[in-house]
Nucleic acid binder design. Structure first.
Lengths: 192, 192
DNA sequence: GATCCGATCCTAGCACCGCTAGACAATCGA
DNA sequence: TCGATTGTCTAGCGGTGCTAGGATCGGATC
């Protein structure tokens, strides 16, 4: 039995290697540079091996996205924990969100910009994505204001952060005013 | 001289045909389906003809984006004109923006999601894009609030709209609550 | 220990992509 | 009418995601 277990372990290792390599390559040179050939070369296997782990490139992107979502959720919760008032939590949350997007542009793209073949806003949404939204909801629900559904408020706040993140990174918004924009957003949206 | 003028006119016509066809194809089947071969076939010329008008596919996307920006600017101004209070203008503006994004997803992608090789937030930003931002600024500047720079406020509002547009279209936000999200956004951001 | 068999992996190739070189035909000016 | 220029097309390059089919290797069986 131990032989089979070893094989399964090695397979799981290789799968992790594929995802980690794809992420690394994407962060280094952009997702366009992540071709199945280059990826295969980096992991020192032939191309078809990738297809024994994933249906195609989309699924690889999806795997990176899920990994990123889990990371982001943890970072958001950590940021929120470090603040000691509802208002401070929201500010910390916003900063952490934008910071994550800026530091991990390829992962952020995998999560929200590219087609990773992931479902959203449905029952079959993958757990890490639901959890990342939940992490936002935990802190934002506190400041939604009277009569405003916490989930709806979180959606709006999240959309604003997402817009800031993508437009800034695409060069559509000057990066030097990020902090001022964040403050304005929190000022207006959070009901103290 | 008339011969040369006719030729120039025909060339301009063909260029418009290329852009219109690219846009149509993108709206019908998505930008992935807009390949130089298919595009050439649809305009009934060979592939290399495209390259006598545009440097490459990116520039074609860019041309669609500019066309879309001009359209959007006009729509935003029309929506704003039809409302008779600053607050109503902002609501109308937000609805018009999201409506445009929903009705012309491919064009919206060309403008903000894809790489059309366009500069932003620089001096060499193409005129239609600056003008679309100006259209937003005209109505949003009125409700920025005391001590808040109108351009900064516009950036934040725009980012929020952009986030709502993209996340909704990507299936990340349930579409049925769009109107409620819009109202919440205007409620909070606009200082009456 | 030899043999078989199934899992595993790779070579080779498909159809398609964006883009371009070079041949060819049509048109213009002399 | 002839040569030059302009315009267009055919053909092809290197790249993409993905897959069929053969080789090879390792474990189980006799």
């Amino acid at each position: 039995m131990s032989v089979q277990e070893r094989k399964e372990r090695e397979r799981a290792d290789r799968e992790r290697l594929i995802v980690a390599t794809a992420r690394e390559l994407a962060e280094q040179q952009g997702w366009d540079a992540v071709t199945t050939r280059r990826l295969a070369e980096r992991i020192e296997y032939s191309q078809p091996v990738l297809y024994s782990h994933f249906r195609g490139k989309r699924e690889i992107i999806g795997a990176v996205a899920l990994e990123g979502a889990a990371e982001m959720a943890a970072l958001l919760r950590a940021a929120a924990r470090a603040a000691d008032s509802p208002r401070a939590r929201v500010t910390a949350l916003a900063r952490a969100y934008l910071d994550f997007a800026q530091r991990n542009p390829a992962v952020y793209d995998a999560m929200f910009q590219l087609d990773g073949g992931l479902a959203f806003a449905h029952e079959d949404t993958p757990e890490p994505l639901k959890d990342a939204f939940a992490a936002l909801l935990e802190s934002l629900g506190e400041v939604a204001g009277d009569g405003v559904h916490p989930a709806l408020f979180t959606e709006v706040f999240w959309a604003a952060l997402h817009g800031l993140a993508t437009l800034t990174r695409a060069g559509r918004l000057p990066p030097e005013d990020t902090e001022r924009r964040t403050e304005l957003l929190v000022d207006r949206l959070a009901m103290v």
